[in-house]
Design a protein around this nucleic acid. Structure first.
Length: 887
RNA sequence: GGGCGGUUAGCUCAGUUGGUAGAGCAUCGGCCUUACAAGCCGAGGGUCACAGGUUCGAGCCCUGUACCGCCCACCA
């Protein structure tokens, strides 16, 4: 970038690409693993691995931005930072995508066979994995690509296997029959939290079940009549006087002509339906529990395709939905259908394919989580702190109510369960190395066809990515990781399980802190989804507005514990900010020596000139605030502070204030140049974690002082050092006085419709000698920024009879109004100003007249208020004097 | 049913130990003032959802109400 031909508007595309390429080529973000481990000088994050075949959505963009801010910031603090990237194999999701593709060729996975199918998935992964990588790069994420991992790569597979075997040997993994959530479409078991409960309109049928002794019937209510063929009991509440005399009797189940018992259980809600509940242990989670409790028969009537089995009387072979209709029809014919009511209830759906879930009894693998969960609970907040704290309760609540984790999935894509069954003796063999023979000598071993839940491998991510189970320097230096940054939607799926595995296998929690960030919603607050069509595609936004704009927008709205409502206009809005920065840099470069020439060194601790002192003072505050905000995950505060400083203070005031210095030349110019270059350079450093690209470009273009060695890459530069001597609240106060004087003139000009081009004469009557000195010292600034022809600073100066006046910081600013000026407008303006002052004074005096306040409030507050009243009185007097002249 | 969050300017939101409300966008008026019209200058706009309580003082703390949203569980 050469300063002669800087483009007037910021064009992000090429500049971003240049820096992305550079950072990748130079491996800027690959850390030197320290020899000796010490948590103080290292900082590490593992990326929440996105689905390898997926697309980045705006939530990922936020997630990546926040992690990148933490990483870049901690690099600036001098720490060795490791950010591990990677992708997740996403078992069911990925398999579904590939199966859908096969379906287009008219094939199923069974046509290919297991091995060929898995090969197809790998091909798919190779083809699309690059896509997600590109998107992470586009966001500017400063990850270490040399350490990229995939949940199915060799090392991670080894880790998964070791964990499975060890947990099995510790009896924390077991195999058992259980009623699980079965997706008839995906043909697999789903964990409880993989089931979406969606409201569904349906009916509730009241069905008469004849009593076996012919003494009448008992009417039950059900939303699933087809499951009645698997009923093995009817339950009523033991204290329900309508029915409890029937307990112990039997029902003759229609169609099957089978006798089933009537049982009593307080689980039954007397108010609901008819007060009598049919019990189908094999097709309902609650009935399953009842089945065990009452030692009922378990009868499956629906198979794993959702078809009625051969034991379903005349309904055998029908699909369950078809069977429902037929059952109802037949009941009607038999006169057993008492009533049909419309009813809306929530029905479990497969979170991947949206098919209705069928509770299904089968043999599955489970992790016994109770003890693991307890340890994970106890570790928070002592070893791991959760931000914002409001999620603590949710975390506890979930762990307290956790059930054993079903980890087997009946799909092909994933980590295959390392368990073999001996054909001869039936022994189950679970080993890290593939077994050849059973202990009985038989070599006819068949491997369990199931694979593991995707979250099983994700749960190991913080240590498996660092080389576990090998002992590696990475583990020594970077485990536990510093923070996990994620959305709350996977707090349970993932975070809690990483806690369990980390504690169990590493003996240490996987992260010091967990930061739960917002969910990104659309402008109306709705969740973004492809089907609603309200998604904002990060790549599209990057193309239109640049990565920095997108990142800054997300950061500025990332207030803790609150969702983000995002719309494209906002991103466009912050593009203006990027452009503003760009132009400030353009201005600077036009007024600074070239990089080759270098700056004249100036001692910033001894700079004269209230505007320089002021901006340096503000810069010191900004440095401290930014650091504090980022440390506390208050990203929006950091963004807002930077925005305000750059736009309102640096650009609107400071750049304007130094224009006269630049024109004056000599010492004034040299000082202004040095302060400007310093302020801009340090501001770029502060902003860099949020906006990596534009700051890198500007940084590289700015000149240093003569002879200084330039670091061309801001990404490797340290956070700007503090300059305690530049903390000058006194200078800030003086600056405010000058600013207020300028604003007063501008306000008079605007309200009285005086052309901005017209140079005015102005008089300032300072309130005291100190004010006079300050104003006099900065006379030139006032003249230029207020566009004055002349300025008189004199407490004794006479104001012309017709003039406009305003009091600012106790000083009276007077603009003589010559010729045809609207006197009424000025009178109105003065009245308005007076009313404002009087209102404030009335409030203050009211407060001070309250003896309780004066007694109990801190003395300094009371003092401050009293001073303010005096100030107001003073200003009012001055304005009244002017106002009197108009009458 | 259990839990959590929200309600502040027209819109979107800040507001960190309670001291009398801020920003951006939008609106209105004026400006091509050689970094930026993606800009500059100025202005208007709020009973902080409602009702009580604590306090000298409440947007902030406590209690309750209303509406909105989310999470978990369950709904025969």
């Amino acid at each position: 970038m050469s300063q002669e031909n800087l483009p007037k508007g910021y064009e992000p595309a090429d500049i971003e690409q240049k820096w992305r390429d550079r950072w990748e080529r130079e491996k800027t973000f690959t850390p030197q693993v320290p020899e000796s481990a010490s948590g103080d000088n290292t900082y590490s994050i593992v990326i929440p691995p996105p689905n390898v075949t997926g697309n980045l959505h705006i939530g990922h963009a936020l997630n990546l931005t926040l992690q990148d801010i933490m990483c870049r910031h901690n690099r600036q603090l001098g720490k060795t930072v490791l950010w591990v990237p990677g992708e997740d194999h996403a078992g069911i999701a990925t398999q579904n995508v590939v199966e859908r593709r096969l379906a287009q060729e008219g094939k199923t996975r069974h046509d290919l066979g297991r091995d060929a199918f898995i090969e197809r998935v790998w091909d798919w992964k190779e083809e699309y994995g690059e896509n997600i990588r590109k998107q992470i790069k586009a966001m500017g994420a400063s990850v270490d690509w040399t350490r990229e991992r995939f949940t199915m790569d060799e090392g991670l597979s080894k880790a998964v296997r070791k964990v499975f075997v060890q947990l099995y040997k510790e009896k924390l993994i077991y195999k058992g029959d259980y009623i699980i959530n079965w997706c008839p479409r995906c043909h697999t078991a789903l964990a409880d939290d993989e089931v979406d409960h969606l409201p569904r309109k349906g009916h509730i049928w009241h069905i008469r079940y004849p009593l076996a002794d012919g003494s009448g019937h008992l009417t039950i209510a059900t939303t699933r009549p087809e499951t009645m063929l698997g009923d093995t009991a009817v339950a009523v509440h033991p204290e329900d006087e309508r029915f409890n005399h029937l307990i112990g009797k039997q029902i003759r189940l229609p169609f099957l002509d089978k006798l089933i018992p009537i049982i009593g259980d307080s689980y039954v809600d007397r108010e609901f339906g008819t007060g009598a509940l049919k019990v189908t242990p094999s097709h309902d989670h609650n009935d399953w529990q009842l089945g065990f409790k009452h030692k009922l028969e378990f009868v499956q009537v629906i198979d794993d395709n959702g078809m009625m089995k051969e034991n379903a009387a005349q309904f055998a072979g029908l699909h369950k939905d078809e069977a429902r209709k037929k059952v109802v029809e037949e009941l009607e014919k038999l006169g057993l259908l008492e009533d049909i009511k419309d009813y809306e209830n929530s029905v479990g759906h497969c979170y991947r394919c949206k098919e209705v879930i069928e509770p299904h009894v089968s043999t599955q693998w489970f992790v016994a989580v109770r003890s693991l969960a307890q340890k994970s609970r106890d570790a928070v907040p002592g070893d791991t702190k959760i931000f914002p704290e409001t999620w603590l309760k949710t975390y506890y609540n979930w762990l307290d109510n956790i059930r054993d984790w079903c980890i087997s999935r009946q799909i092909w894509w994933g980590h295959r369960i390392p368990a073999w069954t001996c054909a001869a003796c039936g022994q189950l063999i679970v080993e890290e190395e593939d077994p050849v023979t059973c202990s009985c000598g038989c070599s006819d071993l068949s491997r369990d066809p199931d694979v593991l839940d995707t979250w099983f491998s994700s749960a190991l991510w913080p240590f498996s990515t660092m080389g576990w189970p090998e002992k590696t320097p990475e583990l020594d230096a970077f485990y536990p990781t510093s923070v996990l940054v994620t959305g709350f939607d996977i707090l349970f799926f993932w975070v809690a399980r990483m806690m369990m595995m980390g504690i169990h296998f590493m003996g240490k929690v996987p992260f010091d802190e967990v930061y739960i960030h917002a969910l990104v919603r659309d402008a109306e607050g709705k969740k973004m989804s492809k089907s609603t069509g309200n998604v904002i595609d990060p790549l599209e936004m990057i193309g239109k507005y640049g990565t920095d704009s997108l990142r800054f927008t997300l950061t500025a709205f990332a207030a803790m514990g609150r969702d983000i409502k995002l719309s494209e206009e906002r991103i466009d809005g912050y593009r203006h900010f990027v452009n503003k920065i760009w132009n400030a840099a353009r201005f600077a470069l036009m007024n600074l020596p070239t990089k080759e020439e270098g700056l004249e060194k100036v001692d910033l601790n001894k700079v004269e000139g209230v505007h320089h002192q002021w901006i340096l003072h503000r810069l010191e505050s900004l440095k401290q605030e930014t650091k504090k905000s980022i440390r506390g995950y208050r990203f929006n505060d950091a963004a807002q502070d930077l925005y305000k400083f750059i736009w309102s203070e640096l650009c609107d005031w400071y750049l304007e204030l130094i224009k006269p210095d630049m024109q004056a030349g000599g010492e004034a110019k040299i000082t202004a140049q040095y302060v400007l270059a310093t302020a801009l350079r340090e501001t770029m450093l502060l902003l860099h974690p949020i906006m990596p690209f534009v700051t890198a470009e500007i940084w590289a273009a700015l000149p240093l002082e003569k002879g200084a060695k330039a670091n061309p890459d801001i990404a490797t530069e340290l956070y700007p050092a503090e300059r305690p001597a530049c903390v000058r609240p006194d200078a800030a106060e003086r600056m405010v006085m000058v600013q207020e004087a300028i604003v007063a003139v501008r306000t008079i000009r605007a309200e009285l419709n005086i052309a901005p081009s017209l140079r005015l004469k102005a008089i300032i009557r300072p309130q005291d000698a100190d004010a006079a000195i300050v104003l006099e010292a900065n006379r030139n600034m006032i003249e230029v920024l207020a566009r004055l022809e002349s300025l008189t600073i004199d407490s004794q100066a006479q104001a012309p009879r017709i003039s406009s006046s305003q009091v600012a910081c106790g000083n009276e600013i007077i603009v003589p109004l010559e010729g045809a000026v609207d006197l009424d407008a000025e009178k109105a303006r003065l009245d308005k100003e007076l009313a404002k002052l009087e209102k404030e004074r009335a409030m203050m005096e009211g407060k001070l007249s309250n003896p309780n306040y004066v007694q109990k409030a801190p003395a300094e507050l009371v003092e401050r208020d009293r001073a303010r009243v005096e100030e107001l009185k003073n200003a009012e007097e001055k304005l009244k004097a002017v106002r009197a002249k108009f009458e």
